[in-house]
Design a protein around this nucleic acid. Structure first.
Lengths: 339, 339
DNA sequence: TTGAAAGCGCTAACAC
DNA sequence: GTGTTAGCGCTTTCAA
C-alpha cells in the first residue's frame, strides 16, 4: 500500500495540490463543493498527512523530550506516564531519555533531543549537575524547557515541584504530635535541592516545637538503598538508643531502617516510629505498613507537560513568556509504622 | 542563534550545497581540500544536520515506537530502559506510549506512531486484544514490528519472550524437590499467553513427578493485586488446609497470599512455601523474603530492539527478512519464603 | 475560488 | 571534482 499524498488526491481529482491542502484545513477561500469532494476522497483513501513534511514545513515536530534520571523507579515511572498522558491529549508524542543521574549524559541527551527538533524539553536535573551553562544558553535562545522535581534556583525558567520543605515539615510535625521526642533524620546525597529542602522542613518542625536539633542523629544514606537504611538502623541502635522516631528521605531507606531495627527486636511503632517519603507500592507491603508522604508523580508529569505546552504555544504566538513555578501539594499517608 | 544549514556553509565558502553535503558525508568525489574546508567550518559553526529534512528525504526517522501495557510497573519500566539503552547505541530514539491493556488504545497508539513515521514498532499485546487484523495488515505491508513479552501465536513476526513454561516448570519443580506435596497455583487473567504458559509449566511439573493435578487448588487472581492474593489465602486456609506450597503468577499476588496466610498464623515457609514470579524490588522487602523467578526486563528490552533494528536494516537493504523468536532465560531466585 | 511558485533542509542522479 | 537540478510532502503567499 503506497502512501497517499496530497499530490495523489490532487491528481485523481484533477485539481492542484494547494487547493487540496487548503480544503483539508477548511480554509474559507475554497468552495464548499471542492471541500466536500476533497474530504470525502481523502477519507476513503484513508489519507494521513506526512508528519515529517509538515514538521519540516511548519518548524514544529509535535514531539517533546523527557529526560528522566531513572526510569525503573516508581516515582519517575509515574511521571513518565503523566507526561505521556497529558501530551497525547494535545497531539504531542514524547521521546524519553534517561540521564542516569549523570551530568555528562544529561548534556548529551539534551543535544540528541535538540537534534531531533523536539519542540520542548522536560528535565529533571541529574544529581551531579553542577554548572548550568548548557541550560541557560538554551533558555536564553528561546527554547522551551521546563524543570521538574529536581530543580535548581540558579536557573531562570518554569518549574514544577513538590513543596518538599512543607511536606517534610508536616511529616515531622506528625511525629511530634504523636509524642515522639527524639526524631532522627535520614537524608539523601548532599547535592540535590530535594535533600536540602526535606532536611530544612525537618529542622523547621523541630524548631517550631522547641525541640533541640541534634546533628548526631542526622544520617546520610549515600545510595538511598535498603541497605543504607539497615546500616543506619544498627548505628541508631548502638549509639542513639533514645531515638524514638526516624524520618527518612525516601521509602526504600525508611524500610531499610525498619527492617534493620526489627532485626534488633525493636518494636515498630511502639518504640520507634518510622516515616518514609514517596508512597511507593512497597509501603503497603512492609510489615508494619509504612507511613509516608504521598508524592504525586503522575500529576507532576501532567502538570509539567501543561506548563511546557503553554510555553511552546506562547513562544509560537510571540506572546511574552512568563516563567512560573508550580508547587504540587503532598499528603501524609498514615499507616502502621507510626504511633 | 539562527540554525546553521548546509546552505549557509555553502554560501560562506562560495561553493554549492551539494558539495557541502557530500563533503560532510565523505563522498570520494570531493577533493580533500574542499572536504577539509567544509568540515572545519561546519565544526566551528557547530553545524547539526536537520533531522526532519534528512528523515523526509531518506524516508526514515531513526525513531521507533514502543507500546507498553503499563509504564508504572517494575518489569515494564525495566523493558523501557532496556529499549532506550539499546536504541541509543544505534542512533535511534524511542517514543513510548501506553496501551493500558486496552485493545482500542493499542490500535490507536499504533496509528499515532505510524503517523509519526516511526521506522518500527515494539509491541506487547494488550490483555484484551482478540483480533489481529490491524497487526497482520501492517506486517504484510512490510512494516517492521516486533512483539515482546505478551505475544500471540496467531501472528507471524519476530518475537522476544521469556520461556514462561520452562520458568514455571522449574519453579514448581523446585517446590517439589524441597518436599512440597500439594502445590496450589494462582494464575492471572485467562487471556494472555503468559498466563497459559505458566499454568502449563506448573501442570507439566506435577505430571512429571506423578503428582495429581487438582483443579480446585488453581485460583484466578483477576487483577493480579495484593488484595487478590489475600483473598485467595483465606480461601486456601478455609478449604484447602492440605496445601503446602503456592506458586503464584506474579510477585505482588504471591506477597498477597503470604501476607494473608501470615495473618492467619500460618508459618511461612515451614507450613506453606510461597513462590512468586518476576523478581521485583518488593521481593527483598517482604518478610520472609520472597523466592521468585527472575524476569530479565532490561535484557528483554535490549533484545527486542536489536531484533527490530535488524529487521529495519534488512528491509532497507531489501534482504529477505526472517522472523525469529528469541527466548530469554530466566533464573530461580531462592530466598526465604520457600523451604 | 483556484493554482503556480517558492521553500522548509537535505540528498542523489546526472551533467559539466 | 563540482554544480545543477529535481524532489521528499507539505504550506502559504501571491497572482490569476
Amino acid at each position: 500500500m503506497a502512501k497517499i499524498t496530497l499530490k495523489k488526491i490532487a491528481e485523481t481529482l484533477g485539481i492542484s495540490v494547494a487547493t487540496v491542502s487548503k480544503a483539508l484545513k477548511d480554509y474559507d477561500d475554497v468552495s464548499p463543493e471542492t471541500k466536500a469532494k476533497v474530504k470525502s476522497l481523502a477519507e476513503s483513501l484513508n489519507y494521513k498527512p506526512n508528519f515529517l513534511a509538515q514538521s519540516l514545513r511548519n518548524q514544529e515536530s509535535k514531539t517533546i523530550g523527557l529526560i528522566i534520571p531513572e526510569i525503573v523507579h516508581h516515582f519517575f515511572a509515574s511521571i513518565i506516564a503523566g507526561v505521556i498522558n497529558a501530551a497525547k491529549k494535545k497531539g504531542y508524542l514524547v521521546i524519553t531519555l534517561q540521564s542516569g543521574e549523570s551530568y555528562d549524559f544529561e548534556k548529551k541527551q539534551i543535544e540528541l533531543l535538540l537534534d531531533k527538533n523536539v519542540d520542548g524539553i522536560l528535565l529533571s536535573l541529574a544529581d551531579n549537575t553542577v554548572d548550568y551553562m548548557h541550560l541557560s544558553n538554551l533558555i536564553e535562545s528561546g527554547f522551551p524547557i521546563v524543570l521538574y522535581d529536581k530543580i535548581t534556583k540558579s536557573i531562570h525558567c518554569s518549574k514544577v515541584v513538590i513543596n518538599d520543605q512543607k511536606a517534610a515539615f508536616n511529616a515531622t510535625q506528625y511525629l511530634i504530635d504523636t509524642g515522639c521526642k527524639k526524631i532522627a533524620h535520614v537524608r539523601g546525597p548532599l547535592k540535590p535541592q530535594t535533600t536540602i529542602d526535606r532536611f530544612i522542613g525537618y529542622k523547621n518542625a523541630l524548631k517550631e516545637n522547641d525541640i533541640e536539633f541534634d546533628t548526631s542523629i542526622v544520617f546520610e544514606a549515600p545510595h538511598l538503598s535498603l541497605e543504607d537504611g539497615q546500616k543506619i538502623a544498627k548505628e541508631i541502635y548502638k549509639n542513639h538508643k533514645d531515638v524514638d522516631a526516624v524520618f527518612a528521605f525516601t521509602d526504600l531507606t525508611a524500610t531499610g531502617v525498619m527492617v534493620g531495627l526489627k532485626e534488633l527486636n525493636v518494636k515498630i511503632p511502639e518504640e520507634v516510629s518510622i516515616m518514609g517519603f514517596s508512597n511507593w507500592l512497597l509501603t503497603r507491603i512492609t510489615s508494619p505498613k509504612l507511613s509516608t508522604v504521598n508524592q504525586p508523580g503522575f500529576k507532576m508529569g501532567k502538570q509539567a507537560f501543561k506548563v511546557l505546552y503553554k510555553e511552546i504555544k506562547d513562544r509560537k504566538a510571540k506572546t511574552k513568556v512568563e516563567f512560573k513555578t508550580v508547587e504540587l501539594p503532598t499528603k501524609l499517608v498514615i499507616r502502621d509504622s507510626t504511633r
